[in-house]
């Protein structure tokens, strides 16, 4: 998710830069050829490993029967039954709800942590480079391993988080985080947010640094307090980036699998079964690839629809 933009760019050259090509008329066929040649390997790879797989997924989702061998897929009879059963299965809607909650909560929390951290290290401070590095440390840590650390910290008997919460008086009794369907999702959220916020910090920091200090000075002169400064100077400057960060984080959370699988594998009693985990369970636990594929197609269509609905917002802000 390297899409770090700066809102200044909006004012300058938009992506694609249709206007800015002074040398373009002189582009010879040979140059064109070179460009295509340079693009070809990536394109070929995408066709083979993305386009063909998507075709396979759709193909599989229309087949009746179980197989894991590609050459046998063509022999299975065609059917729409998988879509019938996916759409009729209450589990699908249950997973959708879990996915929506998981995504919304992660996005909200990650943006909040990202905003707070970015605001704190926005200004030039001695040693800022190191403070920034420390704040971004969770980024290079694999989600699966972060999860394992949180499993230990959230352990129902010896977990340090229970201890700290008891110490400060938030709870009286240890919470068995991953045992109770009420708290399992919170337990899974913690490592997810922990892994997700650094990117938000970074994106917001980039756009915050583009706000000239004079604006804040001017606001101060006008007598604006910290809250008013945030509302009238900071927020207008970062809101576009914040929306983009939310979309990027949201897509990432919606499709991620590591955190849930590494802890609860979807349990207890489906309390943490997101769509990504449901697809995995159907495919690699029950070995029902056609059902998993149909569920996947439905998921992709839903994600696509949400993105389309958001598109006008994005378009207004970025193009």
């Amino acid at each position: 998710m390297p899409v770090v933009t700066d809102d200044r760019r909006k004012a300058g050259t938009p992506t694609g830069r249709p206007g800015r090509s002074p040398w373009r008329p002189s582009l010879s066929t040979r140059n064109n050829l070179l460009s295509y040649m340079l693009l070809a390997p990536s394109l070929a790879m995408t066709l083979v490993f993305i386009a063909f797989p998507i075709y396979m997924i759709v193909n599989l989702s229309l087949r009746d029967g179980k197989t894991m061998i590609m050459s046998e897929v063509g022999d299975l009879p065609l059917t729409l039954g998988n879509y019938d059963s996916v759409l009729a299965d209450p589990d699908t809607w249950h997973s959708l709800r879990i996915s929506a909650m998981y995504t919304a909560a992660t996005v909200t929390a990650a943006i909040l942590v990202g905003l707070v951290t970015a605001l704190l290290i926005r200004r030039r401070l001695p040693g800022r480079r190191w403070l920034r590095t420390l704040i971004l440390i969770p980024w290079p840590i694999p989600g699966a391993i972060a999860t394992v650390a949180f499993v230990w910290m959230l352990d129902g008997t010896y977990g340090v988080i229970n201890y700290i919460l008891r110490m400060v008086g938030i709870i009286d009794q240890n919470v068995a985080w991953f045992f109770d369907p009420q708290t399992a999702l919170i337990g899974v959220l913690m490592p997810t947010v922990w892994s997700a916020y650094p990117l938000c910090t970074l994106m917001l920091l980039a756009s915050l640094q583009s706000v000239p200090d004079e604006l804040y000075e001017a606001a101060k002169v006008d007598g604006a307090g910290a809250i008013l400064q945030f509302r009238h100077v900071t927020w207008p400057a970062v809101q576009n980036t914040a929306v983009l960060a939310m979309i990027v984080t949201g897509l990432w959370t919606f499709t991620t699998f590591d955190f849930v699988y590494a802890i609860t594998r979807g349990g207890p009693d489906g309390a943490t079964q997101t769509l990504a985990v449901a697809i995995y369970n159907q495919a690699f636990r029950f070995f029902d690839l056609p059902h998993a594929s149909a569920l996947g197609v439905v998921t992709m269509v839903l994600a696509g629809l949400v993105l389309l609905a958001l598109f006008p917002v994005v378009r207004r802000r970025f193009f």
Binding site: F52, P53, M56, I57, M68, M70, I279, Y280, M300
Partner: peptide, 23 residues
């Protein structure tokens, strides 16, 4: 269109990849 990749849950993409690689 390369960005379409982001829409596909990895757990879904891995199903055909698994079959292709075993082939």
């Amino acid at each position: 269109s390369l960005f379409a990749v982001r829409l596909i849950p990895t757990t879904l993409l891995v199903i055909p990849l698994f079959m292709m690689f075993s082939e």
